[in-house]
Design a binder for these strands. Structure first.
Lengths: 238, 238
DNA sequence: ACAATAGTGTCTGTTAGACACTATGCC
DNA sequence: GGCATAGTGTCTAACAGACACTATTGT
C-alpha cells in the first residue's frame, strides 16, 4: 500500500477543472470569462475560463470542483452542469508543462448571470471569440458543439431560459442555439413530447406577465429531471 | 512560476486511464478484462479493466496513455478509441484514496482480439458482469450506453466489424448492439446515407468469400472518416 | 433445378414542415 | 373593434417499417 502510494506519486499530474459557462444574450451564445488576477500564474491579466485546481482534501469529485469554481469565480450555482471532456498534454500550458484539465459545461439564464454581480465577469460572443489563453478556445468550441448537438434531442437548452418560461421563448432559445430558424408548430409537438417525457412541466394557471398580445402559458423544467432526453424511435438502426 | 509550480504540486492527484475494450461475441457485447498481477497494488488477482498511470514524461496526452495501455495490457492497437468520461473521488479506490480516472472506450472486431494472444484476456458479457473492482462496472456501463446511443446516428458500431464487412453483417452488428431486431430494408437506406456521408466506402468488385447463397458486396470504414455522423434533419428543434 | 442469401420495388402509416385559422389578452 | 401574439387544425411531402419480389451464387 505505502509502496504503491509512493509509486503513484512519481508521475503526479497538475489537475485543473475549467468551466465553460454559457448564456444567451441578444439571441446569441456567450461565454463568461474571468480576468486572471494572480501575477504568479500563467496568462496573468488575460480573460479566460473560470477554473481552479482540484483540491482532493476538499472536493468530493471533479463535479464538486466545478461547483466550487463557479461559486468562487462566478458567484453562482448553475442549474445545469455537465462534464465535457478532458484536455491534456505538455503543450496546452507551456508555463506549467504537462497538465490535465477536466472541462465542464454550465448553462444559465442571462438573468441569473446578471444577478451575481459579486464577481466581474465578461460575456464574450462565442462566434467572435479571440485572445483566450491556453486551449480555452477549443474548450469553448467543444461546449458549444455539445449544446448544439444536444439541442437536437434533449431539453438541455431550456436551462438557458429563466426559471419560468413560455413555449415561444423556448422556441426562440432553440433557434438561437442552433443558429437557424425553425418551425413553431413542429416545435410545439416536440414540446408536448418533452412534457410527456417528464422534462418540462406546466405551471397550472400561471400565465405570462402582461404583454403585447395574448399572454402565454408558463412552464418550468421538471425539477426531478436533468436534461431529459426525448427518445426518438427512428434512427440509423433501421 | 516556480512558486506556482510548487503550489500546484500541493494537491497532486493520482491519475489513471482505464480502457473499456468492447467486442461482439456470439451476438453480444463483451468487455475485455485483464488480471491484476501486482500484489502491491489494490484488487490484486481480480479481473479488471486494463488501465495504467498517466506518465507525463512519456505520454503526449491521455489518448496516448490509452493507446499505451492497450498496447501493453491487451497487445493491440484499436481502430476506434474515444474518450468517455472522468470518474473521480476518494471512494472509488479505497486503498489509494482520491483518484482521477479518465475512461476510454475502444471497439475492435473479435478477430483482432483473438489475433493478439500475447496477453491473457478474459471476455466478459456486459449483460452479466460481476466481480469487478473499484467502479469499473459503472465505467463499463457508461461505455455500453455510449455505444448504444451512438449506434442511433453514427457509423461507430462498424468498428466492431472486421476490416471488410458486408451490409447484412453490419446490420447484424447494429441489432446486437441495440439488443433488438430491426428492419433490413430501412437499414439499407441508412447504409446508403453512411456511404454518401463518407463514413463507409464500397470496395469495388470485392465480394464476400464463397458462402451459402449470393455473396454480398464488401465494404470498409472510410479511413479518412472517424465515426462519421449521419446528420438527421429532423429533431427537437422543430 | 433448388436452396440460400443478397438486394430491389412498392405500399402504408407516421411525422415534420407549412400555413391558414381561431383564441385571448391589451388598447 | 383593432392589434398583437398564443395556440389549433389540417394538408402535404418525406421517410421508416413491412413485405413481396427479383438477382446471384453454390451444390
Amino acid at each position: 500500500m505505502n509502496s504503491s502510494n509512493t509509486k503513484s506519486r512519481i508521475n503526479d499530474i497538475t489537475c485543473v477543472v475549467d468551466v465553460v459557462l454559457l448564456t444567451l444574450k441578444v439571441g446569441e451564445l456567450h461565454v463568461a470569462l474571468v480576468q486572471r488576477t494572480n501575477e504568479n500564474e500563467p496568462a496573468f491579466g488575460l480573460w479566460a475560463l473560470p477554473g481552479g485546481f482540484i483540491r482532493n482534501a476538499e472536493d468530493e469529485d471533479t463535479l464538486a470542483t466545478a461547483e466550487r469554481v463557479l461559486r468562487d469565480k462566478a458567484g453562482l450555482q448553475s442549474p445545469y452542469l455537465e462534464q465535457l471532456s478532458v484536455f491534456s498534454g505538455p503543450a496546452r500550458d507551456p508555463d506549467r508543462g504537462w497538465t490535465l484539465c477536466v472541462a465542464y459545461c454550465a448553462l444559465v439564464s442571462e438573468g441569473l448571470l446578471n444577478g451575481s454581480k459579486a464577481v466581474p465577469l465578461k460575456l464574450a460572443n462565442v462566434r467572435t471569440l479571440r485572445g483566450l489563453p491556453f486551449d480555452h478556445k477549443a474548450i469553448v468550441e467543444a461546449a458549444v458543439e455539445r449544446v448544439r448537438t444536444k439541442s437536437g434531442y434533449s431539453t438541455m437548452p431550456a436551462y438557458l431560459c429563466p426559471e419560468e418560461f413560455t413555449l415561444p421563448q423556448l422556441h426562440a432559445v432553440y433557434q438561437s442555439v442552433r443558429g437557424s430558424p425553425s418551425n413553431l408548430a413542429s416545435f410545439r409537438r416536440k414540446f408536448i413530447e418533452m412534457i410527456k417525457a417528464g422534462g418540462i412541466e406546466e405551471m397550472p394557471g400561471a400565465k405570462q406577465k402582461p404583454t403585447l398580445g395574448k399572454p402565454a402559458q408558463l412552464y418550468r423544467i421538471n425539477p426531478k429531471s436533468f436534461g431529459t432526453l426525448i427518445t426518438r424511435d427512428r434512427g440509423v438502426a433501421g
